[in-house]
Write a protein that binds this DNA or RNA. Structure first.
Lengths: 152, 152
DNA sequence: TATGAAAACCGGGTTAG
DNA sequence: CTAACCCGGTTTTCATA
């Protein structure tokens, strides 16, 4: 699917606030309500828009402590990789996990309440997973920018 | 604000799909539509829910190339830090930027189309910012997990 | 429960390939 | 001639007091 200028503008608006009414969007875009409705339907159907979600303020729910964990596996056989990935994906503290290039194999973004909880997480959950060689953690001091909106 | 079990369940549902009708939510939670409405209103008003957004599939919009850049500043005087943070926050390719502990000062998550675009970004944008000492980039090979939902 | 508003759907008209 | 797009009106559904 090819996105024209209007689609991109529409996506920008929806990535910023998905609760706007089609009417408000139609005014912003200079289109009819129906046209907006159809464009959104198409963006949904084509999977351009994956889902609509509420974003929760992590500080207000006591998950203000963010850690980034680099993880290296002992071995890189298919089995090890698959089972590590399956297990790590199930950990509720892990919001993101990427297989990356470089010295370490994985980069994890971990959300917990505080350092104490992080220690618990490391000891009782992450390092309990087999095949982990070494880990290296960094802690968030300040969040400079955090958006879910992709510029188009 | 204290969240009870029902609030947490409600937040879980809304973090997964914010387009559900209050009726659907009320059935799921075993409440009346009005009760659900009031709880959501309260969560909104208290800033527990920050915003409602559409999530766009990065691969479908040609932003499937993800890089993580570590950045070290030359100096750490107030001025340098403030101006670096202000400038980096304005870069559209940078979705996330964290001031972190460890060998490097910052961790950036960068979304671009491909390696070529990443090169452009580094040369023309990131390293054009003053006060940058060194950088170290890692590239995403695979996204194992990526959720915006905080477990409560 | 009631009501005002918005979403969802439909038929028709317009333009571009 | 077909397909994609856009519009206005109608029905249904939802948010909200």
């Amino acid at each position: 699917m090819i996105l024209d200028k209007t689609d991109k503008k529409l996506l920008k608006l929806l990535q910023d606030d998905s609760k706007q009414t089609n009417k408000a969007l139609s005014i912003e875009l200079g289109l009819s309500v129906t046209a907006v409705f159809e464009r959104i339907k198409k963006l949904d159907a084509n999977g351009i828009i994956k889902k609509y979600v509420a974003l929760v303020d992590k500080k207000r729910v006591n998950k203000g402590f963010v850690a980034f964990c680099h993880v290296k596996l002992i071995q890189h056989s298919q089995d090890f990789v698959v089972s590590f990935e399956r297990e790590v994906a199930q950990l509720e503290e892990v919001l993101e996990c990427y297989h990356i290039s470089g010295d370490y194999d994985y980069l994890l973004k971990v959300l917990v309440e505080d350092m104490e909880a992080f220690r618990e997480f490391m000891v009782k959950k992450l390092t309990r997973i087999n095949h982990i060689g070494s880990t290296h953690s960094m802690f968030m001091i300040n969040e400079v920018k955090h958006t879910t909106a992709i510029e188009l």
